[in-house]
Write a protein that binds this DNA or RNA. Structure first.
Lengths: 350, 350
DNA sequence: CTGAAAGCGCTTACAG
DNA sequence: CTGAAAGCGCTTACAG
């Protein structure tokens, strides 16, 4: 099928001018270096309209211009089957800001390796170069590939904090440390002094940061952290036995890395006849992507949509900057969903 | 810093061959038309490795012809804030099939008019031309724009049945008529003879088709449709009074256009002390995008993911066809979610 | 077996 | 004010 597109030379011929003039007019360079009569300009736009001319982004890019294509690359499928567990809120923000910045979005679906995994480089080719720059996310990110992107100075912004030893890279991420410290600070300021912290056994960046926030809140108030009250557990390991042990150790508040652990802690405590906030306080430092979020639970809310939008703005900004300007890291604060699980400590029932 | 990326000519120079040979070797065209000595080929690969050469995908596309970009255009935001009410399932299918067909996806976010509405044409220019072809969806589709696309022979596939008087266009859609007829046929074959049909006051294409399916099932069995039992109502108008009137008219089964009306009918019937399937049968011809779908309700399930995938395949196929080949319309059957609201009619309780 | 050359559709100096 | 021309980095006939 492939209808032949009109080219710049077709427009030029129809308007009776040279191709270079068409290029200048279309790119708005008309009124600067080269002044072109309003009449000529009008003829050119008429020809553009008549032929339905649209510049070829590929040719533009090759000739040195940009193509106003923003890439989106995810190591996992961009649209997982279950939207609840997905990148969806990020995409909402990315789309909104792409509209605002007048960029189109390019989803790299050609980047699948034969085994179904996604890779930026296939046979040594950087597939992202189709776009002016790209937004990356996904926990599976290969450090090797990021290093190579950095080496060839391809402009990209990561969603999420990423470390590539020896390099700095641009990213946008929730302020897990600071927001975690704020939340834990609220717990401490309510008068709690013995806080348990439940975290998962393997910690990826955001979770490391949340734990750091937990410690930071104590440190800022000159309070000690009892390392014995920090438990690395999977959700199913949060048993009544574990929770009873915490209470026995004088714990009045339980802070968890994410909502799943908090839910488990609640169930376990209830089996012991203990309820939040009457008997103990409970707060989670991460939110849940699953939709039915317990409205009672006091938890952080990760501003995913704002993060997506901010990533687009940062990328567009980088595209306009000198190639060697330092990459920026942006931390967006989380909101605190004030539930009903947080209160001042009461005297323990004996 | 970082020396300029090596080009094919650099590789050629280092290997002592012409640029064309490098291109052939790198693209594996070496052993076909042009036979190149193993030794030469080895020298070239050595040079590639030594220089860290990576072919520029942009230049490749320009020289190659098409850009293997598939556009996705929606009249509403592609990613609405609430994923439940969204195009999400279509996108899942589109992404999966784009991967299979080795195309990248282009989301048109540059197509917003100043007033925030999306239009394919801005200032007379067809923005979709950035891609080889495009998939369109959205109920707000402007017939004018579609007509113009057809006139300029731009290859596109619509998701959903669309009418443009005087033209045929390619689309993929759920087989609302046939699947509706199948569902209603099941109701009839259970022995029900007086079926009520609840539909919304304004009917867009899929809903028109469902009603047609309702009639078709009767027609095929030589059974009459009582027009007085077809009610055009909004969900809030499905009151106990209305449902009582239906029962009084001898109705033993209620079929609705979509799940919302079915939910209302159920509630209204319960107020009358009537329950499905004991007292009457209930079935819906459309499904619900909202996630907590009542598992009891017998309803059609629209194969959105399959529709998205099929649309991609159809578009790719059209791109390979002669420009004037007839557009194809594809109907995909719905699955029937067998709930618990359907049974043979019982003698009415008096 | 291999090279010189045209061309993909643009942008951008450079000449008038 | 406007045009002729080089060039971006490739692919692909075409010619030896």
């Amino acid at each position: 099928m492939a209808a032949l597109r009109p080219r710049q030379k077709d427009v030029a011929a129809l308007a009776g001018v040279s191709q270079a003039i068409v290029s200048a007019v279309i790119n708005g360079r008309a009124n600067r270096a080269m002044r072109i009569s309003r009449e000529t300009e009008q003829r050119i736009w008429d020809a553009v309209r008549q032929l339905g001319y649209v510049p070829d982004p590929i040719a533009r890019k090759l000739a040195g211009g940009q193509n106003r294509l923003l890439g989106v690359f995810t190591y996992e499928p961009t649209f997982p089957v279950q939207p609840q567990t997905s990148n969806y809120p990020f995409l909402v923000g990315i789309e909104q800001e792409a509209v605002a910045q007048n960029y189109n979005l390019l989803l790299f679906t050609q980047t699948n390796a034969p085994d179904g995994r996604r890779t930026i480089y296939t046979a040594g080719v950087n597939n992202l170069r189709l776009a002016d720059g790209a937004i990356l996310f996904g926990h599976q990110a290969h450090t090797d590939e990021l290093r190579q992107l950095l080496a060839e100075r391809y402009p990209f912004v990561f969603i999420g904090r990423r470390q590539v030893p020896g390099h700095e890279l641009a990213y946008v991420v929730a302020a897990h440390v600071e927001s975690g410290a704020e939340m834990v600070g609220q717990v401490l300021d309510l008068g709690h002094r013995r806080l348990a912290y439940l975290r998962s056994p393997v910690a990826i960046e955001p979770e490391q940061d949340r734990e750091e926030g937990f410690r930071l809140a104590h440190q800022r108030r000159g309070l000690p952290v009892d390392e014995r009250l920090i438990a690395r557990v999977r959700p199913e390991e949060v048993t009544p036995t574990l929770v009873a042990a915490l209470f026995a150790a004088g714990v009045t508040a339980i802070v968890t890395e994410q909502t799943g652990l908090a839910d488990q802690a609640r169930v376990a405590a209830r089996e012991l006849g203990k309820v939040a906030p009457g008997d103990f306080s409970l707060a989670a430092l991460g939110d849940s992507m699953t939709l039915p979020l317990d409205p009672d639970l006091t938890t952080l809310i990760i501003p995913r949509q704002a993060i997506g939008a901010r990533a687009v703005r940062l990328l567009v900004q980088r595209l306009a900057q000198a190639e060697d300007s330092a990459p920026e890291q942006i931390y967006l604060p989380c909101a605190i969903a004030t539930g009903r699980t947080l209160a001042a400590p009461t005297a323990p029932r004996l």
